[in-house]
Computed example of a mutant assay.
Amino acid sequence: MRTLVIAFVVMLGFIACKKDIEYKSSFEKSNRSWKAFKASSNNNYRFVVSGTSWSSGSWTTTLKVQAGVAVERKFAYTIYAGVVMPPEGWTPAKQDEVLARINLTAAAFRQQTGKDISEYLSWTETGAMVGAHTDTPATPFLTLDQVYEKAKNDWLKKRSGTTTYFEAKNNGLISACGYVPDNCADDCFTGIGISLIEAL
């Protein structure tokens, strides 16, 4: 009986270890910073998620939260087809440059994508429309509460055959979190990269 009890305790310890996460102490410290920021900002903030792909270019998604509720999501390609978005946004001249790079007319682009190029390259959703754009690399709407939950329950889980990343360069808040399967060459990162977090 004593041997059975010891075996059971060892098994429970093994299961608990398997559920542990990478960067545990760094994550917990950052989570405490998040809770302090959430309280000091009254849960009103915006954050910018950056993304990149070898085939699509790069983009940002800006998410605005008021009292913990989604109120706005903005998306913009910062580079598309090798064309860099100017500081003032996608001007008609730059949109034409993109079309020339991909060898399409505006009408052909609309036929292929179902959107005008201006709406494809950047858009804003507010209120009940948040989350309306689909088939886009834009970050799905997540509050920072949900980001920390996903980090703990998915992105930082200990798993074999992957390399895990965690950084907290936004004044202690998450700036990068996720994992990449070993021996994967392109667009393999699962997680999030946050370039800015600020109170509103």
Rank of each mutant, 00 (worst) to 15 (best):
K19T: 09
E22Q: 15
N44Q: 09
C17T: 05
A36C: 04
A16T: 07
S30G: 08
I15C: 08
K18V: 15
S25P: 02
L12R: 07
R46I: 04
K38T: 03
E28C: 05
Y45H: 02
K24W: 10
K35C: 05
I15G: 05
S25R: 11
K18L: 14
V10C: 06
N43I: 01
I15P: 07
F14N: 06
S30V: 05
N44E: 03
C17D: 12
V48A: 04
K35A: 09
S30I: 00
G13W: 07
R46L: 05
F14M: 10
R32M: 13
K29V: 10
D20H: 07
C17I: 10
A36N: 13
K18Q: 14
N31D: 14
F14P: 03
S26G: 14
K35S: 08
L12S: 11
F47L: 00
F27S: 05
M11C: 14
F14L: 14
N42P: 02
E28F: 01
M11F: 14
S25K: 11
M11L: 15
S26A: 15
W34Q: 00
S26F: 10
C17R: 07
V10N: 06
V10G: 02
S25Y: 08
E28A: 09
K29Y: 12
E22F: 08
K38C: 02
L12W: 09
C17A: 12
Y45M: 00
I21E: 09
F14H: 06
W34V: 02
I21A: 07
F47V: 04
E28R: 03
Y23T: 00
V48K: 02
A36H: 13
D20V: 04
N31S: 14
F37E: 02
N31Q: 15
N44L: 01
K38I: 00
G13K: 00
A39F: 09
E22W: 06
G13M: 06
R32T: 13
V48H: 04
Y23H: 13
